[in-house]
Design a protein around this nucleic acid. Structure first.
Lengths: 232, 232
DNA sequence: AATGAGTGTCATAAATTGATTATAGATTAA
DNA sequence: TTAATCTATAATCAATTTATGACACTCATT
C-alpha cells in the first residue's frame, strides 16, 4: 500500500530532510511551506498522514490542525521547537496524534509514523487478497481481473490502476497522484496518464458506447463509482 | 466509558504518581511492580491500555511488550529512562504505540493516552473530508456537492467557490477577495467574479425564483447564510 | 535476428470550461 | 424622478483539458 504524507514545514532544510528520509522508505511525500498552501494541498490530494510544524507563515500550525480536524480524522503528527507542556497539551486537545520536539531523529519520526499506520492497518485488517467492488473483482495473487464475472486481460499498469480505483471507490485521483502511484516519480506527464486511463477503459469496457465505470471529473481527475446513477 | 489502564512500573514513586494522576481524570488503574505479575494481570483483567516501563525485575519491558503483542493489539505506551534512538526504535518495532522518556509530565502522559483512545473511538469515519453547512454538503474526496441531499454538478471554479462560502458562513467576501482566492492574482476583474457567482447560483439553485443561498451585499460583496430569512 | 506485447510520445480531434462583452436590471444618491 | 453606479444574465469565442489513433521504442521470448 502506497501511503501519501503531507509535510507542512517552512524550514527548507528540515522539510527536505524529512522528504528524502521518508521517500527512501517508500512513502509518497508532498511538502508545503505555509499553512494556507498546506491546507489547499490537503483538500486537493489524497493524503494519509500529515506532519505539521507549528511555526508557519500565514496560518499557524494550531490553526491548520483545527481546520483539518473540522473535516477529517486523518493522523497528524506535530513537529515543533516548542517544548512546553502547554503547547503539547493544546495540540493533543486539538486532535493531534503525536508531538515531536525538534530536534528529533529521522529514525524516531519514521518509527512513530510506522506505528500509526500499523495501528490503522490492525484495525482494518488489510490482509485481503481479493478485492471486490460492484461488478469488478480482482485477485491480487493471481493478478486476474473480472468484470461482470467475465475475465479481462490487463497489462501490469492497467491492473495496478484498476486496483487503485476499486480499492478507493469515489475517491478522485488527480493525474499527478496517478503518475506518482504508477511511476513513482515527481515529474508528472499528464498525457501518459490520459493514455493509460484510455487503455484501461478500453480493456475493461463491457459494451462499447456504454459510459465507462471510470469517470472523468473535469479539471480534477478520475474516479471509480460502484453504481452509476443517472444525471438528474 | 470506563477505561482500564495497567501500569507496569517498579519505581514506587513513579507508579503512584501515575496512578493518582490518572485516577483523578477517571481511569481505572492497576499497578504491577514487575514483568511477570504485569503479564499475569494483563491476562486476567480486562485491560484497555498498558503503560510499560522497560527496566523491570524478572522480565524486562521489551519481553513483556513482545509477549503482549503475541496475543493482543492493545495500545501500549512505553515509559523509560532510556533516551537512545536504539531503544525507541526497538520498542516501536516490537509494536509499542508511544514512547515517553523519563522524566515526563503527567499532563503529557494524560494527553497521549487521551489521543490514543480518541483515535480508537473514531476508527469508523476515517479520513473523510466532508464539509456540511445547512442544506449544503460537499465531499472534498469525491468532489461531490449536495444541496438538499440532491447532487449538483459543479465546474472546478464553482466547486472552489462553494467551498469558500460554506467553509466561512456569514463572512462577507469582496470581489477582490474572491478574485484572489480563485485566480491567485492581485489584479481583480470584477466582472469575472460576478459571472462566476451567477454561474454558481444557477448551478446550485433548487427552484428558480427562490432567493439564492448566496446573498448579495450591495456595494460590498457576497455572503453565504445557512438559513435564508426573508428580506426585511 | 525476428516477433509481439507493453509502453511512451506525438499530433490531432473532441469536449468542456471560463473570460469577455453587451445588454438589461437593480439600487443608491441627488 | 433621474442619473450614476453596481449587479445580473445571456451569448459568444478563445483557452484549457481530455480523448483517440498512429507510430516508435524497449525488452523478453522465440
Amino acid at each position: 500500500m502506497n501511503m501519501t504524507i503531507l509535510v507542512i514545514e517552512d524550514n527548507a532544510l528540515c522539510a527536505s530532510l524529512i522528504e528524502s528520509s521518508l521517500t527512501k522508505i517508500g512513502y509518497e511525500i508532498f511538502v508545503e511551506r505555509d499553512g494556507q498552501t498546506g491546507l489547499d494541498k490537503f483538500r486537493e490530494a489524497k493524503i494519509d498522514l500529515v506532519i505539521l510544524d507549528l511555526l508557519l507563515p500565514k496560518i499557524n500550525g494550531e490553526q491548520v490542525l483545527t481546520k483539518i480536524r473540522q473535516t477529517s480524522n486523518i493522523p497528524i503528527i506535530i513537529i515543533s521547537t516548542k517544548t512546553s507542556e502547554m503547547s503539547k497539551t493544546v495540540c493533543f486537545r486539538l486532535g493531534s496524534d503525536d508531538y515531536l520536539t525538534k530536534p528529533f531523529s529521522m529514525v524516531e519520526l519514521e518509527a512513530r509514523i510506522n506505528a500509526i499506520f500499523r495501528r490503522q492497518s490492525m484495525i482494518h485488517n488489510h490482509s485481503k487478497k481479493i478485492v471486490k467492488n460492484g461488478d469488478v473483482l480482482i485477485n491480487l495473487d493471481s493478478h486476474e481481473a473480472f468484470i461482470h464475472e467475465k475475465q479481462v486481460q490487463l497489462t501490469p499498469i492497467q491492473f495496478k490502476l484498476l486496483y487503485l480505483f476499486i480499492d478507493n471507490p469515489k475517491q478522485i485521483f488527480t493525474k499527478e497522484h496517478i503518475s506518482r502511484y504508477i511511476w513513482k516519480n515527481d515529474s508528472c506527464n499528464d498525457n501518459a496518464v490520459i493514455v493509460q486511463i484510455a487503455n484501461l477503459r478500453k480493456a475493461i469496457q463491457v459494451h462499447p458506447k456504454q459510459p465507462s465505470i471510470i469517470k472523468t471529473i473535469w479539471g480534477v481527475g478520475y474516479q471509480y463509482n460502484e453504481m452509476d446513477s443517472k444525471s438528474s
